[in-house]
């Protein structure tokens, strides 16, 4: 196998992984602190992608598109938190799943009503359109490298926010004992809304970066949402560190599987059999990985210490 191709695919895997992390971070934060399972998290991803693509088409300013995407995602998240999710915190997980399922139907349709049923075309900003030579003779799209950089940067910022700042301290305290935190005078309601807005903003960021790679269409958030679920289950629900490790693992395994499983199988079996088995196995790979992890560690790789 061509080592440069392996390198390119490995980078693709990392790029997919950091995008999954941006999704999974919000999900796992919201679950760890509010004990809420939110299927509509994919809708924030979609809203971010649409708002950014539409803004970019209208203004052709990358900066405005970035702000519009994150802003729209966070705003929708905060609005939905105030209208619906506050009522769901004390409910059981089944209720949360179903209510947020209803929200998905709603958002998918609203997006179709505003921007029409056809997919939007999102473009890579001009200054990131080219290729970068990462090794002599190995060009790689600058845009994907930028995604990796942004993803890692956001992960570092998030780590600093949660473990070094006062608000992060409140977030961690809220995760371990919310009653005590509110008794100590922290406005838990506002804290929850802020955390929710933060998670929604991160999802929107992932969505707007994904726009030029995938298509911007109604329902685009759902596949990545389910992958993000796989990520937080593998990582241990509620753990940001777990989400980071598992995101990279899932992104890497999925991308490498799709790229190299078929040629790998072709070395041990007939070509036609590999043609059939390769893609089938590649699409199942991360779920098998999840099953294997859970079989040995039912609470994920990094289960949160509390609870």
């Amino acid at each position: 196998m061509d080592p440069l191709l392996v390198l390119a695919q490995a980078l693709n895997g990392i790029q997919f992984g950091v995008m999954l992390f941006l999704m999974a971070a919000g999900l796992t934060l919201v679950f760890g602190i509010m004990n809420l399972i939110n299927l509509a998290h994919g809708s924030f991803y979609m809203v971010g992608a649409y708002a950014a693509a539409a803004t970019f088409q209208a203004t052709s300013s990358f900066l405005l598109a970035l702000l519009a995407g994150i802003g729209a995602g966070a705003a929708v998240g905060i609005l939905v938190e105030i209208v619906v999710f506050r009522r769901l915190y004390p409910r059981d997980h089944l209720d949360q799943v179903l209510a947020t399922f209803g929200l998905i139907l709603f958002f998918n349709e609203i997006v179709r009503m505003i921007w029409g049923p056809t997919a939007l075309y999102a473009t890579v900003p001009h200054f990131l359109a080219g290729q970068v030579e990462i090794l002599p003779g190995a060009p790689y799209p600058a845009y994907r490298l930028a995604i990796i950089a942004v993803g890692l940067g956001v992960a570092a910022l998030l780590y600093a926010l949660v473990s070094k700042t006062r608000i992060g301290m409140m977030i961690r305290a809220g995760a371990s004992d919310r009653v005590m935190v509110s008794a100590l005078g922290v406005n838990v309601k506002v804290l929850y809304t802020l955390v929710f807005g933060l998670g929604a903003g991160l999802a929107a960021l992932a969505g707007l970066m994904a726009g030029p790679i995938f298509t911007v269409e109604s329902g685009m958030g759902e596949n990545v949402l389910i992958l993000a679920f796989v990520v937080i289950v593998i990582g241990g629900i509620g753990s940001i560190r777990g989400a980071f490790v598992a995101s990279l693992l899932v992104g890497f395994v999925d991308t490498m599987g799709r790229a190299f499983l078929r040629p790998l199988l072709a070395t041990v079996m007939a070509n036609t059999a590999a043609d059939n088995a390769g893609p089938a196995l590649a699409s199942m790979l991360i779920y098998l990985l999840m099953a294997a992890v859970l079989f040995f560690r039912p609470r994920g790789l990094f289960p949160p210490r509390t609870r």
Binding site: I37, L94, I226, I232, V233, I237, Y287, M290, L294, R299
Partner: peptide
């Protein structure tokens, strides 16, 4: 082997598989 939220997500993931 799991329960609660893990169970919900795992059954979903297997169906996706």
């Amino acid at each position: 082997r799991t329960s609660g939220i893990y169970f919900i997500m795992i059954t979903l993931a297997f169906a996706q598989m």
